[in-house]
Each structure stands twice: as C-alpha cells, then as structure tokens.
Simulated scan of single mutants.
Amino acid sequence: MNSKHRIASILKANTLAAEITGLQTFHLSELNLTTELEFELPTKLRLGHLAEKIVAELIKSSTNYKVLYENIQIRENKNTIGELDFIIENILTKQLIHLELAYKFYLFDPTIAEETMHNWIGPNRNDSLKEKLDKLKRKQFPLLYHNCTKSTLNDIETDKVTQALCLLVSLFIPYKYNESFSPVYEKAIKGYYFNFETFVSLDNSAKTYYVPTKKEWGMDPSENEIWTDFAGVENYIRICMKENQAPLCWQKHNDLYITFFIVWW
C-alpha cells in the first residue's frame, strides 16, 4: 500500500456536515499543512485505527493545531469504560477540542425507512449511520464530563473543552437508483452497489478489476497498478458471497475508473 496515496485519500475524504450529524463538525481542511505529508504507516492496524493514526500525524504536522491527548483510556475501578479519540488545541485561540473521528463506508437501502438518514447501512448490514451517531451522542461525547475523565485529564478544565466530530464517509447507492439526494449526501457518494448476478451481467472483455484490501478502501483506484480480468476475481467474490461478505471492487474500463460494492443480500 502506497503511504502517500493512503494519506491523501484521508485528506480528500468527505466530511459529513453538522446538519446531518447534529454535532459540531471538524474538517481536516482546517489544518494548515505547509508540506505534503508522507510517513511510514503501521501494517497491522485495522482501517479505522489506521485513519486515526493518519489524522493524528496530520494534526501534529499542522501549524495551527496540536495534539494534547490521543486514544485516552478512561477507567473506573480498573475497568475501561470508554476512550476519547483526541484532545487537540487551537494554537492561536488556545481553545481545546475533544475530537472524535470515524472513517465509514455506508450503502443506501431505500427499503428501510422513509427518512434518508435511517437508510445508510454498513456493507454487511451489521451497522448503520444512525447507530453510529446515536452512540456518539449517548456515550462518546458525554464521556468527557465523567468524573473519571476529569481525574484522568486533571491538567485541563474539561468543562471548557468544546466537542467536534470528524466523520469521514464514502457513500454508495443502488445501481441505477434515480432518486435525488440532498447536496450534503450527494458530494459523498462515491459509487454504487449491486449483487453478484448483476456484476456478472455487466462484465465484458474491455473491463479489468482489482479487489482492494480493507486497508485500501477509499483510495483512488486510478493510482492502482494491478488489474485483472473477471476470471481473476470471480472465485474470490464467490467465496465472499457464500460467507456473507460484501467486497469493495475497483473497475478500470478504458480510462474510466469506478468503485462499487458487490453485496450478498
């Protein structure tokens, strides 16, 4: 995995706005970065933790923010009751911010509910945007004001710390779905999804494919150099379908690159 391209993909990722999340938004574009960042990425981290590591390095490399704390374990009677992602400081204003970060991929299932926000689910249907936001509001952000947090962060006044969410999302809609979305969602839509039968029906000899590892999700497929024909990915995708796993796939067709999920449901 190319570190430079992975870092760039996080910087370019769409941030879901406060009008959807109901929480103050922190945009990575607020970071004043004077140089193009490139550093060695850990190889054993899962995607979410990898994104956290990259964002931590971006903040530390900026000239207007600094990291005071990261991945703060909050314990009560030797039991961990939660974790805060970051406490950062605006160097100019000295304002402290409790920042929570998430890097998520959601698919739109219009059959779930009438309200759009309730219909964004994980590729394998085991999580959702609504559940994520509910957890943040119910657990993550209130944790800052827990007595155990105050004793852990005893060098700062937690009551004066503001809170913000950096929710980086890539959204996918059903193949040939024609309904419109609000601009807040529209700009985060990166592709579509369909089942394996549709994938097979759309294949032709001019198309080549690559199935990225989860650590590569969200990267620009045009930067990829390894491509294969349908036969090169068919067996792997069939196995994914049997195991109820929805893989992300990149497709190259002439000079056009597209990203889609192949779902089992």
Rank of each mutant, 00 (worst) to 15 (best):
P221R: 05
E186G: 08
T111S: 14
F141P: 00
R46W: 08
G218S: 07
L41G: 10
E30Y: 10
I121Y: 06
S182A: 13
Q251L: 14
T15G: 04
L37C: 12
A51I: 04
H27G: 07
D203F: 05
T116N: 02
N204G: 04
Y65A: 07
Y175L: 06
I54D: 01
E19F: 02
L33N: 01
D109L: 02
Y175H: 13
T208V: 12
E225W: 07
E100D: 12
A231Y: 07
K139P: 06
L165K: 06
L248I: 04
Y257W: 04
N154T: 05
T21P: 00
F172H: 06
E19L: 03
I258C: 13
I91E: 06
T198C: 12
K187E: 12
F172P: 07
S180I: 02
V161N: 00
L23D: 02
L84I: 15
Y177F: 12
I91G: 01
D85I: 00
Y236V: 04
G218M: 01
A51S: 09
M117G: 05
K53G: 13
E114V: 13
N124P: 03
T111Y: 10
I10F: 08
I173F: 03
L84H: 10
D155F: 14
L47Y: 03
Q251D: 06
C249V: 15
G122F: 07
Y69T: 02
L28H: 07
N254V: 06
L16W: 04
K215M: 11
F108H: 07
L256Q: 14
I74V: 09
A164K: 11
A188R: 00
A18L: 03
M219V: 08
Y210G: 02
Y106F: 05
T25I: 08
E57N: 14
L58C: 11
K12S: 14
L248P: 09
C148I: 11
W120K: 03
E179L: 15
Y106G: 06
K94W: 05
V184I: 10
I239C: 09
K150H: 04
E243Q: 15
K252A: 03
V55K: 10
N224Q: 14
K150R: 15
R46K: 11
Y193L: 01
A56L: 13
F230W: 05
L92Y: 13
E115D: 11
L58N: 08
N154Y: 10
I258S: 15
N178I: 08
P183V: 10
L11P: 02
T149F: 01
I72T: 12
W120E: 00
K104E: 02
V263F: 04
C148F: 14
S170H: 15
N119D: 00
N204R: 05
F196I: 03
E234A: 09
P212A: 03
S201K: 11
R138T: 12
K190N: 04
N79Q: 15
Y185F: 13
A113K: 12
Y65C: 07
L41Y: 09
L37P: 05
P247S: 08
A231V: 08
D127M: 11
N178M: 12
S62V: 07
P212W: 01
H118M: 13
F39L: 03
N254I: 12
